[in-house]
């Protein structure tokens, strides 16, 4: 079967799955319980990796820009200004989501994939439970809702990384850096980043769930589903980023 037909088939299967996912939960009480579990598992448990990566990338960004911009024609606060624009516009949303596609995406795909191969999803279906809605809906909603928290956290910690490096190296000075990160600030960029990350969050949770839900065979296939979900998520996030940026800022 050609790749195009296979891809079209996958898009169709994904649409059908999403149609089953987005329906009213059988029991709202059960949904809310699962939703809060997923917020903790997918969102709160990702804070540490977001913090570590954001801190170091923020610090290195400031260091690199500081070393690159040594023209007397450019004011030193440019370092803070450019770092802020990078962190706000691309790093905390797009790059962070690419990282989360690995952590959260593989987690979702392997969890649902394991449930598929051990007949747990069949057990749900036999009970008359809409398994797609029960398993996937809480994951998508929890991750999308928690995404702004992760993005804002990443922005703050990234800028803090830059601040610490200025404090340690002294170039640019802390005051210049703080002036730079406040200069020509546009709140729209923050909103833009949050909106973008929520779209990416939806892609990560839904695409990973799709791969896990359709896993067949054994442990090897679950691993494969997990890998495929990370690859597909990464490509879709990059394409969606391009499209979103062109649409909103182009």
């Amino acid at each position: 079967m050609s790749l195009t037909i296979r891809s079209l088939e996958s898009v169709g299967e994904y649409a059908l799955l999403m149609n089953r996912v987005f329906s009213v939960p059988d029991r709202m009480r059960v949904f809310l319980k699962e939703f809060s579990k997923e917020v903790y598992k997918l969102g709160v448990n990702s804070i540490w990796i977001v913090s570590i990566i954001s801190f170091f990338i923020g610090a290195v960004t400031v260091m690199q820009i500081s070393l690159s911009i040594d023209s007397p024609l450019l004011p030193r606060f440019t370092v803070g200004f450019v770092s802020r624009e990078i962190i706000l516009l691309e790093f905390s949303s797009t790059i962070m989501c690419l990282i989360l596609a690995g952590k959260v995406g593989s987690n979702i795909a392997s969890e649902i994939g394991s449930m598929r191969i051990t007949e747990q999803i069949d057990a749900l279906e036999i009970m008359g439970v809409n398994s797609a809605n029960y398993l996937i809906f809480p994951k998508i909603t929890a991750f999308v809702v928690f995404m702004p928290v992760l993005v804002i956290f990443s922005m703050f910690v990234g800028l803090m990384g830059g601040y610490i490096i200025c404090l340690v190296l002294g170039t640019p000075s802390v005051d210049t850096y703080i002036y730079g990160i406040q200069a020509f600030f546009r709140a729209l960029f923050v909103w833009n980043s949050i909106a973008k990350s929520m779209i990416f969050g939806f892609i990560i949770a839904s695409v990973s769930a799709f791969y896990g839900y359709n896993a067949k065979g054994g442990a090897l296939e679950v691993g494969q589903a997990s890998t495929n979900s990370v690859v597909t998520n990464s490509i879709l996030i990059l394409a969606a980023n391009l499209l979103f940026t062109q649409t909103t800022m182009g």
């Binding site: 449930m115 007949e119 747990q120």
Partner: peptide, 9 residues
């Protein structure tokens, strides 16, 4: 009752 029990882990 499934062959592998299919309990929720």
């Amino acid at each position: 009752l499934f062959q592998g029990s299919a309990l929720f882990d």
